Simulated scan of single mutants.
Amino acid sequence: MTCAELGGELDSLSGIVTAQGACPEGTDVAEITMPCEEGEYALDALWVQRVRDDGSYDEAEQLTDDECITPADLAAQARREFKTMKIEAPVATMQGNPPMIVNVHYPAYTSATAQDRTVTLLGVPVVIRADPAEFTWNFDDPYSGGDTLTTTDPGRPWHEGDPTPDKSWVGHTYSRLGTPGEDAGTAVDDNGNAYRTGVAVALTTTWQGRFRVQGTSTWTDIPGTITTTSTTGPTTVTEARTRLVCDDLDGNTVC
């Protein structure tokens, strides 16, 4: 800051000041803004007033000068903010009405979308963004083989009119249920059908970070990742055995 004539243009310096009220009569404090290059952002000088032992304040003291900063200057701060960012775990869905049936491919999908946080870094307003980058599904199926799936595809639900979901869809097929009486949760019902209870699917979402100065469109990547975990409610998987019967759907005996 400097002193300038009241109501006049600032065309010459009349003395640098370090505190409000330090200008002579007839002048007032005028602020000098440092010009910054394209892609740089102005950071104002830092001032402080220290508290004396008697509770009064010292004269204002300038700790830093005005300066121009770049996204590279903000990178370390942005990384710390991203690492402590509270990301809401997305909803994970294994589509299908319970109980699920063995040898049927059930689609799995998530609602994951980018999440933003606005912070101030070194006096500059910055948007921190977490983008869902990778999805690891654990289908809680130790008996069929290949009970985990890692993909960059969030999956999609089946809708009426879609083709029957197959293994090209993000999802899983339960083909075995374990041994009734030996494996936890596996038993046999009154009709002799094996079933397994308490099956819960877990989704681990990996998030990547980036940041931009608020009001600009250029994003800068942040090293490192964050993970969240989502879990579906427990369900039951059971067999659907085929049986030969003598009656058709109209009740006619055909045997």
Results as ranks from 00 to 15, higher is better:
residue 156 R to P: 00
residue 152 T to W: 00
residue 121 L to I: 07
residue 155 G to Y: 03
residue 87 I to L: 11
residue 143 Y to C: 03
residue 134 E to A: 14
residue 155 G to Q: 03
residue 107 P to D: 09
residue 76 A to T: 10
residue 109 Y to L: 03
residue 105 H to A: 02
residue 91 V to H: 11
residue 106 Y to W: 06
residue 76 A to F: 02
residue 175 S to P: 13
residue 191 N to G: 13
residue 148 T to Q: 14
residue 139 F to R: 05
residue 93 T to E: 03
residue 96 G to A: 01
residue 138 N to M: 11
residue 103 N to E: 13
residue 156 R to I: 01
residue 186 T to S: 11
residue 174 Y to W: 15
residue 181 G to K: 08
residue 107 P to Y: 13
residue 155 G to M: 03
residue 190 D to W: 06
residue 186 T to Y: 06
residue 176 R to T: 14
residue 131 D to V: 14
residue 154 P to D: 14
residue 152 T to E: 03
residue 167 K to H: 08
residue 94 M to L: 12
residue 196 R to P: 00
residue 126 V to Y: 02
residue 101 I to F: 04
residue 107 P to G: 12
residue 103 N to S: 13
residue 100 M to I: 09
residue 168 S to K: 13
residue 183 D to N: 07
residue 153 D to Y: 02
residue 165 P to S: 10
residue 126 V to I: 10
residue 102 V to Q: 09
residue 82 F to V: 13
residue 74 L to T: 00
residue 142 P to V: 05
residue 136 T to P: 00
residue 175 S to I: 13
residue 82 F to W: 11
residue 197 T to I: 04
residue 99 P to N: 09
residue 175 S to T: 15
residue 84 T to F: 06
residue 143 Y to F: 14
residue 187 A to Y: 07
residue 152 T to R: 01
residue 151 T to Y: 07
residue 131 D to Q: 14
residue 193 N to G: 08
residue 175 S to K: 15
residue 196 R to A: 01
residue 90 P to S: 04
residue 116 D to P: 06
residue 176 R to A: 14
residue 192 G to H: 09
residue 183 D to L: 04
residue 152 T to C: 00
residue 151 T to D: 04
residue 166 D to W: 07
residue 173 T to Q: 09
residue 183 D to M: 04
residue 147 D to V: 01
residue 149 L to A: 07
residue 151 T to I: 07
residue 199 V to C: 05
residue 95 Q to M: 06
residue 191 N to M: 09
residue 131 D to W: 13
residue 152 T to V: 02
residue 195 Y to M: 11
residue 155 G to F: 01
residue 190 D to N: 11
residue 107 P to H: 14
residue 176 R to W: 14
residue 94 M to E: 01
residue 118 T to D: 15
residue 73 D to K: 08
residue 190 D to V: 06
residue 78 A to S: 04
residue 75 A to T: 15
residue 163 P to Y: 04
residue 96 G to T: 02
residue 165 P to M: 10
residue 170 V to L: 02
residue 73 D to S: 10
residue 190 D to P: 00
residue 75 A to C: 13
residue 81 E to V: 11
residue 134 E to T: 15
residue 129 R to H: 05
residue 155 G to P: 06
residue 81 E to K: 08
residue 85 M to W: 11
residue 193 N to I: 08
residue 134 E to K: 15
residue 184 A to R: 15
residue 79 R to A: 12
residue 102 V to P: 04
residue 161 G to F: 07
residue 146 G to T: 14
residue 132 P to Q: 00
residue 161 G to K: 08
residue 158 W to G: 02
residue 74 L to R: 00
residue 93 T to H: 05
residue 157 P to N: 12
residue 107 P to E: 09
residue 145 G to W: 06
residue 146 G to S: 14
residue 159 H to N: 15
